[in-house]
């Protein structure tokens, strides 16, 4: 589903002395099937933005459309539940939402609410447990007996079991160990490709944005600061540093390389190996073509 924000603003606790504008006149378009990274400093409005995507909050001003669903200050879709079954949201620290007696029941909770038949749920569960890296034996345990990382996987499985078309991830790997982070991101990426999802990833990690996204939106103080292809947006060091963000390591490396050798290798989201061979080629050729 296409997602469009049209001059959207959102004010928390409007009409009180505590009123706070978390999103200010934000417009962008996310085409169906894209993998979009939303990046920004803490408090820049990322979590507020994503709560619009399944109608948890409605814009104070402006319009949000998700496929055929429209949200404005005084209009909401007739069938909110349907919207929520098609847009799955994994919140920050989703393990806080677990409550059932067993892992299996907790994963089944979402699909049950959305009316999925129980044989179908069982089928989905056995597939998804493997995807997220849980094992069958853990399904009958209490989610509260698991480690933090495993609880996170259960919570994510609970969202995936609904089989949404749009998958929204709010810092899904925050607080996991590096290996867990990598595995989880790879899993989201595979799902994105296999099931042709539209994925929106809120992240602090420039590396993840560069590696997985095909579209980047940078937020600052509730407004859009930059938007575009990752290789264009994420290589602009000065602009990013102005909003307390860093460029990806690879860009830092190419930058340092240029300073030391006076040779520019353009950033095209190459892997480390690709850059290494590029450098090797240049050194072999003695830079004849410079």
């Amino acid at each position: 589903m296409d997602i469009t924000f049209n001059h959207v603003s959102y004010i928390y606790q409007a009409n009180t002395p505590f009123a706070h504008k978390a999103i200010d006149d934000l417009s962008f378009h996310i085409p169906s099937g894209s993998f979009t990274a939303v990046v920004g400093h803490t408090g820049s409005g990322k979590s507020t933005l994503i709560q619009h995507l399944n109608g948890l909050i409605r814009p104070s001003d402006g319009e949000v459309s998700i496929g055929d669903y429209r949200l404005t200050n005084n209009a909401k879709p007739a069938d909110m539940k349907e919207l929520r079954s098609r847009v799955g949201v994994v919140f920050q620290y989703p393990e806080h939402q677990l409550f059932e007696e067993t892992v299996k029941k907790d994963i089944a909770f979402g699909p049950e609410n959305f009316g999925v038949a129980s044989e179908e749920i069982d089928k989905r569960i056995s597939r998804i447990t493997a995807d997220v890296g849980l094992n069958e034996e853990q399904l009958e345990r209490s989610p509260f007996d698991l480690s933090g990382g495993q609880m996170r996987r259960v919570a994510i499985a609970g969202v995936l079991a609904v089989q949404p078309e749009v998958l929204v991830l709010d810092e899904p790997t925050a607080g996991l160990d590096p290996r867990g982070q990598h595995e989880m991101m790879e899993m989201f990426h595979n799902l994105h490709e296999q099931q042709r999802l539209t994925t929106i990833l809120v992240t602090h990690s420039m590396e993840d944005a560069v590696r997985y996204a095909d579209h980047v939106i940078i937020l600052n103080n509730g407004t859009k600061y930059m938007e575009g292809k990752p290789e264009d947006v994420l290589s602009r060091k000065e602009a990013l540093q102005r909003v307390q963000l860093d460029v990806p390591e690879m860009v830092q490396f190419l930058d340092a390389f240029e300073k030391k050798f006076g040779k520019k290798i353009p950033f095209r989201r190459q892997s480390a190996a690709a850059i290494a061979s590029e450098i090797r080629d240049r050194l072999r050729e003695g830079d004849r073509y410079e």
Partner: peptide, 16 residues
Amino acid sequence: QETDKISKAQASRGVD
């Protein structure tokens, strides 16, 4: 805050 967060998370999982 916690109540708000969790009720939003469960609403996303289809609780009304």
